[in-house]
């Protein structure tokens, strides 16, 4: 009994780490730039395909390809902010919504055209192995993904709290107008925010590759959970998104174990609705941190 519960919690926590990487990106963009990036999942997909091709063509371990996917996606983020999002930032939300939504559809269909709908997997020595602790199983690939995800989240937290640029980003997310009055260059801050958010999505892609298949629609699977986590953890709150992601992973896993195997999402969305009913600003509190 205890073993089953513990195993369910471990399973949930590990996948929650991946949700966290995706949702932190979404919440960072929302907090700083004040737009909802519907294409975040597609950047995870791009990260996965980059890792897949590096592994397939050059035999590079997907974990090492982090050092390729993160910079590539960082640059993509900067370019997207500079050439696309910057143009539609204004009092009207609709162009922003359609911009990221169009970007999502474009990337998805481009991937279908270029890579076809086939599933691609990478096999590493640790893909199918697990650590056995007592009667519990901790899959190696997922544990590595979780640890790296937490480390990246920690680095982001340090960056936001100790560097000038990070502080500027937090300032911009708390009050954009005042931040501008204080001499913060918004476009520069926005470019970095987009860059970091996409780099995290790319990292999620690389970390997923050893145990998940890449296919054009793969982003959609993760982005839904990410949006829930973002709302649950208070929009724009990085720490909130992180904690909410882990909670959701655990709730989903326990739901599958004890309610029914097709009710993982039911549990997660029930949790979301209950939270919104009693604490509409989310669990992270009303303030972006």
């Amino acid at each position: 009994m205890f073993e089953t519960v513990a195993q369910a919690v471990i399973n949930g926590l590990l996948i929650g780490g991946i949700y966290a990487l995706v949702s932190i990106g979404v919440t960072l963009i929302f907090g700083v730039v004040k737009i909802v990036n519907f294409a975040q999942g597609e950047f995870v997909m791009i990260g996965m395909y980059i890792s897949f091709f590096l592994a397939n063509q050059y035999g590079i371990d997907p974990l090492l390809s982090l050092f390729v996917t993160m910079p590539v996606l960082f640059v993509m983020g900067v370019l997207i902010q500079h050439f696309l999002i910057r143009r539609v930032l204004g009092p009207n939300d609709m162009p922003q919504i359609f911009l990221t939504f169009a970007l999502s559809l474009l990337l998805l269909n481009l991937a279908l055209m270029l890579f076809s709908a086939n599933y691609r997997t990478v096999h590493t020595s640790y893909s199918d192995e697990a650590f056995h602790v007592g009667g519990l199983y901790i899959p190696e690939a997922k544990l590595i993904a979780f640890v790296v995800a937490m480390a990246l989240s920690g680095l982001l937290w340090l960056f936001l709290h100790t560097t000038d640029l990070g502080k500027a980003m937090r300032a911009a997310s708390q009050n954009r107008d005042v931040a501008m009055l204080m001499g913060i260059n918004p476009n520069r801050v926005f470019c970095v925010a987009l860059g970091i958010a996409l780099a995290l999505a790319g990292a999620a892609g690389s970390l997923l590759m050893p145990f998940y298949s890449a296919y054009p629609f793969v982003g959609q699977v993760f982005v839904l959970m990410a949006f829930v986590a973002v709302v649950l953890g208070t929009l724009g709150n990085v720490m909130g998104a992180l904690i909410a992601s882990l909670m959701m992973g655990i709730a989903e896993s326990l739901g599958i174990q004890y309610v029914g195997a097709d009710s993982g999402q039911i549990v997660v969305f029930a949790m979301l609705l209950l939270t919104l009913a009693f604490k509409p600003t989310g669990l992270g509190g009303g303030r972006a941190r």
């Binding site: 399973n11 590990l14 326990l254 599958i256 174990q257």
Partner: peptide
């Protein structure tokens, strides 16, 4: 699904 482990645990 994103993860098969809860199902396999069951």
């Amino acid at each position: 699904f994103t993860d098969a482990s809860p199902l396999i645990n069951k």
